[in-house]
Simulated assay, not measured.
Amino acid sequence: MSTYYNKVKDYLLNLEFNIVKEDIAEELFVVENPEGGIANLIVDCEDPILIIEGVLFELNAEKPEVYKALLQKNREIVHGAFVLDESGKKVLFRDTLPLENLDQNELEATLNSLELLLSEYSEEIISYSKL
Rank of each mutant, 00 (worst) to 15 (best):
E26L: 14
N60R: 04
G54P: 03
L102F: 13
I24Q: 11
E123R: 09
V55K: 11
E22W: 06
L84N: 04
L28H: 02
N6E: 08
E58A: 12
N33T: 00
S2C: 12
A25G: 01
V8L: 05
E32W: 02
P64T: 02
F82H: 03
K7A: 07
I52V: 14
L59T: 04
E27P: 04
K73V: 03
L92I: 01
E58N: 11
F17H: 09
L13M: 10
L70N: 05
E115W: 00
P48D: 00
Y11L: 00
D47V: 14
R94A: 13
A25C: 00
G37E: 11
K73Q: 15
N105R: 09
E22D: 07
I52K: 02
S119Q: 11
S113I: 01
V83S: 12
D103C: 08
S2K: 13
G36W: 15
I51Y: 11
E65V: 00
A39E: 12
E106Q: 14
E120Y: 12
I38F: 10
L56T: 07
N40S: 14
P98R: 00
S127W: 01
N112D: 15
E32K: 05
L111Y: 07
K9T: 06
S87L: 13
I126Q: 11
E62P: 14
G80S: 04
K73M: 12
L131H: 13
I52P: 09
K21Y: 10
I19Y: 04
R75P: 00
K68F: 10
A109T: 02
E35W: 11
L15K: 07
P64L: 03
L114S: 05
